[in-house]
Design a protein around this nucleic acid. Structure first.
Lengths: 113, 113
DNA sequence: ATCCCTTATCGCAAATATACGATTGATTGT
DNA sequence: ACAATCAATCGTATATTTGCGATAAGGGAT
């Protein structure tokens, strides 16, 4: 994405929240995660059968979820088993929680900036 | 965004979550919301002073937040007062909560599909 | 080494997103 | 009616995203 002429340095929490949110910002990726939540894990091929999308497209969405840290792949030759990345999942959960909580309890909000 | 040749109809919850997440998927918009949380409300001009971005850029981000339903504008001539849209904010909060909760309590997950 | 299965990556096209400056539009006050 | 103020929109440039088909890459089995 194009950056402002003057580079803006947001604090880490903001960047992290935006990164997770961006990864969740597509219905297909939400559905993939919901699928993973139910199955606990799955293979790329499973998703290709579930979604009317090309294999390369599914792979791309998985890559984005992986890059965001929300899922992780495990080699199970000849397939790859994808699972939710528990650690980051919890992290994301907490970041979203704290973000939304702030408005309820303003006094609990301690901004970094 | 380009759609698949075969149109995919995701369920409403998925679309809504993705819509909120997409709106949150940019650090500037996160910061705007944090600012709104602290100030409870603000004018566009306030933000233009806070962020090193052009007025048109700020306005565009506000539009996206408004389109997503997260904020609302109120005419306070000659300015426009922006506040968080309480109703949708709560809605978003709950949708995110339920999305992240699912993995903790699988049995509580009742998928529509 | 070769083949097979599975998934990732490449190359391309089209749509969206992000940013800016300039202009328009709306409203208040003179 | 006119000017001033503030925010939205337009036009433009560039970057990113989304999707596809085709190809490459990795690993096991023959």
């Amino acid at each position: 994405m194009r950056r402002a002429l003057q580079i803006i340095n947001y604090n880490d929490d903001t960047e992290e929240l935006a990164r997770y949110a961006k990864a969740l910002g597509h219905p297909t990726r939400i559905e993939i995660l919901k699928y993973l939540e139910n199955q606990s894990c799955c293979f790329t091929g499973d998703l290709v059968e579930v979604f009317p999308l090309a294999q390369s497209t599914i792979s791309q969405h998985l890559k984005e979820l992986k890059d965001a840290g929300l899922i992780q792949g495990e080699l199970k030759p000849p397939k790859i088993k994808y699972c939710i990345n528990q650690e980051n999942w919890t992290k994301a959960k907490l970041i979203f929680e704290s973000f939304f909580k702030k408005h309820d309890y303003t006094t609990a909000y301690l901004p970094k900036t």
